[in-house]
């Protein structure tokens, strides 16, 4: 299993720090998307592990674990597609608070 992941990024300080061409390392993430979200999906115990939310999430942030599914909240945008696709209403959207 692999996917693009967050890595440190040192802002270029001098001209020679900039890349020479337009190509750079694939799957190199430097910013999260969590700040876009007003609501947070929570997978509840009603889940029957049918994987439809995993499949239909446009951001691919629902992932399989040994005991079921989990969500990468660093990149979930809170769109609510997972909640709508779930045949068991097992996903609840909770309003995000600032803490």
């Amino acid at each position: 299993m692999s996917k693009p992941y967050l890595r440190p990024y040192q802002k270029p300080q001098k001209l020679s720090d900039y890349p020479l061409g337009t190509a750079s390392e694939a799957g190199y993430l430097v910013t999260k998307n969590s700040g876009w979200r007003n609501e947070r999906p929570i997978i509840t115990d009603e889940c029957i592990n049918c994987l439809q939310c995993y499949l239909y999430c446009p951001d691919g942030v629902i992932f399989k674990t040994e005991s079921g599914l989990d969500i990468d909240y660093d990149f979930c945008k809170g769109c609510g597609i997972c909640e709508r696709i779930c045949p068991k209403q097992a996903i609840k959207m909770e309003v995000e608070t600032n803490d």
């Binding site: 996917k3 693009p4 799957g27 876009w36 951001d59 990149f75 809170g78």
Partner: peptide, 12 residues
Amino acid sequence: SEFFYGHKACAG
């Protein structure tokens, strides 16, 4: 595996 991840598309 995910090959398109962390992208900046609008929610949904």
